[in-house]
Amino acid sequence: MTMQVELAQSPFDPSLRLAAFSAALEDEGAVVSFTGRARGRGADGAAVSSLVLECYRGVTLQSMKAIAADAHGRFAITASIVIHRAGLIAPGEPIVFVATASRHRRAAFEAADYLMDRLKTEAVFWKREEHDGTSTWIEPTALDREDALRWREKVNENAGN
């Protein structure tokens, strides 16, 4: 099992990270990746000049590692990488990159989806959008919470089988 978790303070290239991740694999038949990018417009449609992600490095990194370890314990994946930005992020820049690998596609897809749902709602970050001299704090939405909750429900559904 290979698990890599990184908290990045500067921009990174997801395509280069995916190429390196894939090159290190052995006999996996599936690789799934996701890249989240900073949007140029807020939920209200206002232009966003930057996204700021604040964190306590040790606490945030520990929360990310716990989420990744949970994914490895839950899904038949052989490798994963999670990179999440912190600091000032310009519109269009990658915020988060997740890749998973497994022998078969279903585990890789589900693990990547699980990682993103948990990172979005549970990783320890404080997020705000900057626009025209003002800022707006961002919290996970009700839909984000529903997405994360479905994984708890799947555990409960599978517990009786």
Rank of each mutant, 00 (worst) to 15 (best):
A19T: 09
I67E: 01
T2V: 15
G73T: 11
L25I: 02
L88T: 15
I67L: 09
E93V: 11
A79H: 09
L16R: 13
G133I: 01
F75W: 10
M3N: 06
V124N: 11
A68P: 02
A99P: 06
A108I: 09
G133L: 01
Y56C: 10
R17P: 02
P94A: 12
A30R: 08
P140E: 03
M64Q: 07
F21E: 05
R41T: 01
S50I: 04
G45L: 07
T60W: 04
E122H: 08
A69N: 06
G87D: 07
G45A: 09
L119N: 05
A43T: 08
V48Q: 00
A69L: 13
T100Y: 03
S10R: 15
V32K: 10
G87C: 08
A123E: 00
V31L: 07
A86S: 14
H84Y: 04
A46D: 12
R118D: 01
S63T: 03
I67R: 01
R37K: 09
I89A: 06
A38D: 00
Y114C: 10
F12L: 13
W151Q: 02
R39W: 01
H84Q: 12
D132L: 07
A86E: 14
I89T: 04
R39C: 01
G58C: 05
A112L: 11
T136L: 01
L115T: 02
R118Q: 14
R118I: 08
H104G: 12
R37Q: 03
I83P: 02
R17I: 12
R145T: 00
G133Q: 00
I77N: 03
M3E: 05
V59D: 12
K65S: 13
E54S: 01
A111S: 12
K154S: 15
E146K: 15
A148V: 00
A90D: 14
G73L: 14
E146R: 15
P140I: 00
T35V: 07
E139Y: 04
V31A: 10
D147V: 03
T2G: 07
V5I: 09
Q62D: 15
A79D: 00
T2A: 13
I83T: 05
A24C: 07
G133E: 00
S22P: 06
R145E: 02
L7A: 04
R74K: 11
E129I: 00
G42D: 07
G58I: 10
F97K: 10
R152H: 12
E146G: 11
T134Q: 08
E110Y: 06
G42Y: 01
Q62T: 11
L115H: 00
I95S: 08
F125I: 00
R150A: 09
D113F: 08
E93R: 00
L18A: 04
R41K: 13
L119E: 03
T134A: 10
E157G: 08
V31Q: 07
G87V: 06
L51Q: 02
L16E: 14
D27Q: 11
G73A: 10
A69Q: 09
Q4C: 13
R118S: 13
F75E: 02
T78V: 09
R145N: 02
